[in-house]
Design a binder for these strands. Structure first.
Lengths: 265, 265
DNA sequence: ATGCGGGGTTGACGCTGCGTCAGGGTCAAG
DNA sequence: CTTGACCCTGACGCAGCGTCAACCCCGCAT
């Protein structure tokens, strides 16, 4: 008679799942990976569960919802209290790490949201703003942005110092004039007169930089010839005027572009 | 000549990946899903990348690391500022939700860590503690715990009220005596004398409960005959003495176990 | 008897974002 | 000529199920 009572109290997979608050598919998955014992079947092949299965399933669900990987759930369910406590401590550590990572993501997303700063460090964003402010053409600012993305990827640590220097340079009226000339080149890049004037100005600025020791510092900061060539080719690809300017500047005794050096005699 | 410079500045997939800070496998994956254009190949079939690919790859990485699903990255990379801002706002919402969920997990894990509260609501943990305190045998406490896991799964909202009632009952000296008798049954469950004494006491308690209207409230709280049968079968499975006690209690005019009713005449 | 709706059964593919073989070819250096 | 560090394609694997497909079973209304 007891067995009759039990038979009446048996559950189908659907009722088991709904009592435990999981999907039928999840229950079968747990069977597959051996988390939950396959129960007896009735005459027509249906799985027949008892109350103990509900309890075990709820335990599984509790751990799984707490973010415990199923592989660990198996061990945890049959663990002694000490092992269990140790494991939960460990899992809590992982959860904290995940939360920190997500918060970091939020910070980055927030930074992305404001302005064109996709993948660009803050200092560079600031510098680009100032470039726009002194009237540099939009296309140049975009090209600069991409170039600094590359630089920041290669030497992230050097970016703050370089940017500080760049921003300081913008106080130099000659530099401002340079960007204004570039603005005019953007409108008419076949004007040889204009290009020559710009090259003269650049040559002058390089002279100043050499005198202040800036060019030597560049060599220290960027000791990777292959990467410098990459940056140069990137500049060349940005606009045809760049190649012409490089020629003109070379005539005035300077080689390179990303990293400028006085040409050996 | 420009093309020679470009050729020299071309990158293999490995150098591209290292500049952008991703794995080679990731780059190939982005090719596969169309996030990054497949570049030209050299004579031996190697992919040859330019600097622009590095920039695009860094953009992809930035978004991906910020937790943006790759499917969205594709759209975001070419989006106008408004769409972009809207999307980042949306993504930030999702991140917040994820963080909240993980924090909830941490809370739960923390609760799991202390004591036997795996999947048991707090109120029940408290009640089980008190049961132990009055000397209930460990096996009974475990059985009770599992039974309350089931109850909490079926009627979570009712648990606080039920537990308050249960705790209050423990102030009744007769109830304390009941659990002490059960403790003795746990040691020798074939002692008919003891079982009879226990059944008498239970009958008496049921009488009190019926008088105070508790039994009627039970009917309201648990209107699910099939589930009640499940709980009963669970109790029967817990210990052979349960079945015998049910018989003896039935002789005294009570049917059921999880939900007790005066037997119809 | 028959049809219907709502259970159940197994099996297999899909999703994310790559990691990780397997089984090759290429390139520069010793 | 070998070695080691690259590159190539193709394919499986991972967690945790969701979601068909194609079929069986049961109770109820017709």
């Amino acid at each position: 008679m007891v067995s009759v009572v039990q038979a009446e109290a048996m559950l189908t997979i659907g009722r088991l799942a709904s009592y435990a608050g999981v999907t039928i598919r999840a229950v079968r998955h747990y069977h597959q990976i051996g988390l939950l014992r396959e129960p007896e079947r009735d005459a027509s092949g249906y799985r027949t569960y008892d109350a103990a299965a509900v309890v075990r399933l709820i335990r599984i669900r509790t751990l799984a919802e707490a973010g415990v990987p199923l592989a660990r759930v198996r061990a945890l369910l049959d663990a002694d209290p000490e092992t269990f406590t140790a494991a939960t401590t460990e899992i809590d550590r992982q959860l904290r790490a995940q939360i920190r990572a997500l918060q970091e993501h939020r910070r980055r997303i927030a930074r992305l949201g404001c302005g064109d700063s996709l993948a660009v460090p803050e200092e560079v964003v600031d510098y680009l703003e100032r470039l726009r402010a002194i009237g540099a053409p939009a296309a140049l600012v975009e090209a600069e942005r991409d170039a600094w993305i590359l630089m920041a990827a290669r030497w992230p640590a050097a970016i703050p110092a370089i940017m500080a220097e760049k921003v300081a340079q913008l106080a130099n009226p000659a530099v401002v004039r340079l960007y204004q000339l570039i603005g005019r080149i953007a409108e008419n890049w076949r004007d040889e007169e204009l290009l020559r004037e710009t090259a003269d100005l650049m040559s002058e600025l390089f002279e100043q930089a050499a005198a202040s020791g800036e060019l030597d510092r560049q060599d220290e900061i960027m000791p990777d010839a292959a990467f410098i060539r990459l940056m140069d080719s990137f500049a060349d690809a940005a606009h045809p005027a760049v190649a012409r300017l490089r020629e003109l500047v070379a005539e005035r005794g300077w080689t390179g572009w990303t990293r400028v050096e006085r040409r050996d005699p």
